[in-house]
Design a protein around this nucleic acid. Structure first.
Length: 91
DNA sequence: AAGTAAGAAATTT
DNA sequence: AAATTTCTTACTT
């Protein structure tokens, strides 16, 4: 297990708290993690993502409308968000 | 000292 | 006006 910094831990906790079907920006997570300017560090932390099955990092998107990147593919990330949104709407 | 899953601004189409 | 590209900023390793 790699040594995670406090900041990373906080980031994972925050991202885990994001409700299903919703998205948050990296800036939002960074602010909640105690370092509002560390948006890039958030990405770097999620990129390692030791909890890829625990932390819903696919719910974290860019604030300017971009989808950002995803360890399993940005394409999959978009799909997941689409599926989650529909699951919540449930028609 | 180097790299990065972002952000904003500038430029192009 | 919208999309894409480029440079900068702050944080971890």
């Amino acid at each position: 297990m790699k040594a995670l910094t406090l900041f990373e831990k906080k980031v994972y906790t925050v991202v885990k708290s994001i409700p299903m079907g919703e998205t948050r920006s990296y800036a939002w997570v960074a602010a909640r993690a105690g370092r509002p300017r560390a948006v890039r560090a958030v990405g770097t932390a999620l990129r390692k993502n030791p909890f890829v099955l625990i932390v819903p990092c696919h719910r974290v998107v860019r604030s300017d409308g971009g989808i950002g990147r995803y360890a399993l593919g940005a394409d999959l990330k978009k799909k997941l968000l689409r599926i989650e949104a529909q699951t919540l709407l449930k028609k």
